[in-house]
């Protein structure tokens, strides 16, 4: 009886392997003849922005008759490397990588290149150089936001800054750009800076505490993302201070766009998830069709300032 079970299991296993092999072979063939296959490993499908990039990739893939396999790395670089390994084993035609970390996700890039499968990084970079890159320069977002704050303040006033999760690439780059840019405005003083971990509830508490200790002295708030910007905004509104304080944040999430439209949030900075996702798929297809003769290997999609004047074109 037991032997029988084992036999069945072994048979099952073998046919599974066979099916996998056929499937793998099929993929390769499909890549040359019919529908190309692209494997994508995304940082986290719990992040609203990354979900938007993924949606754009899927839309572009279906427009262009490409089969797109999307995996969620759940912020773990190890998982990401494993996902890319299995893409290589499946014999996909190209890989799109939305890196979890600069350093720790690099092996994924190296392995794909060693296997001769074109790999394109989307949204953020790795230390290892991929075949192509589609994304935005994170520093630019902070520069645009602060430039706007400085012009609203006419170059003079007290600023508080809300940081994202300390040590993450976006936080570090936005903080570095903040410092560089503020050097040009000696009369803008940073009253306080603190992390609210990208989180709206935490930002609300932090802003309440700042209002308590600095009161009327705060002229402007710069939050490194919209979630925190919205939290700061709500705290200021509850304290009846919103009319006196400028709030600018980054990402252009739906809630923030609505707040800009209603004249509550002064500005947000739009990062183009749609263009990033679509162009990543286009570039992958380019590499599949033209191999090494692809000319444009890095595409930088500009950030854009969203104010009440132009918010309509961003609202769907």
């Amino acid at each position: 009886m037991k032997l029988f079970e084992i036999k069945i299991n072994a048979g099952f296993f073998a046919s599974g392997l066979l099916a996998l092999a056929v499937l793998g072979g099929g993929c390769r063939q499909a890549g040359q003849a019919g529908k190309p296959v692209i494997g994508a490993s995304m940082l986290s499908l719990q992040s609203e922005f990354i979900v938007k990039v993924k949606d754009a990739m899927e839309a572009e893939a279906s427009d262009r008759q490409i089969r797109l396999i999307v995996n969620d790395a759940q912020r773990a670089a190890v998982t990401q490397v494993q996902q890319v390994e299995s893409f290589i084993a499946q014999g996909v035609d190209a890989i799109i990588l939305n890196p979890c970390e600069m350093e720790a996700s690099s092996p994924a890039v190296q392995k794909a290149r060693a296997a001769g499968i074109p790999i394109i990084n989307v949204n953020s970079e790795t230390t290892a150089e991929p075949d192509g890159f589609v994304g935005s320069r994170d520093e630019e977002s902070a520069e645009i936001a602060l430039q706007h704050i400085a012009s609203l303040l006419r170059g003079k006033g007290n600023l508080v800054i809300m940081h994202g999760y300390m040590g993450q690439a976006a936080q570090l780059k936005r903080a570095a750009a903040t410092k560089t840019l503020l050097a040009d405005f000696p009369e803008i003083t940073i009253l306080a800076e603190q992390t609210a971990e990208w989180d709206r509830a935490k930002a609300m508490s932090l802003m309440e505490n700042w209002i308590q200790s600095y009161g009327n002295r705060i002229d402007a708030v710069f939050a490194q993302n919209d979630e925190m910007g919205m939290g700061a905004l709500q705290a200021l509104e509850q304290a009846g201070l919103k009319d006196k304080v400028i709030v600018v944040s980054i990402d252009a999430i739906d809630d923030a766009l609505r707040a800009v439209k209603d004249g509550r949030l002064d500005a947000t900075v739009y990062q183009d998830a749609d263009a990033q996702g679509r162009q990543a798929v286009q570039m992958a297809l380019d590499f599949i069709q033209k191999r090494d003769s692809v000319e444009e290997r890095s595409v930088y999609i500009p950030f854009r300032l969203v104010t009440r004047g132009n918010v309509e074109e961003f609202l769907k």
Partner: peptide, 13 residues
């Protein structure tokens, strides 16, 4: 503690 450390502007580290 959370409130007090924010009021004192103690670095988040």
């Amino acid at each position: 503690i959370n409130n007090g450390l924010d009021l004192l502007n103690v670095s988040s580290y």
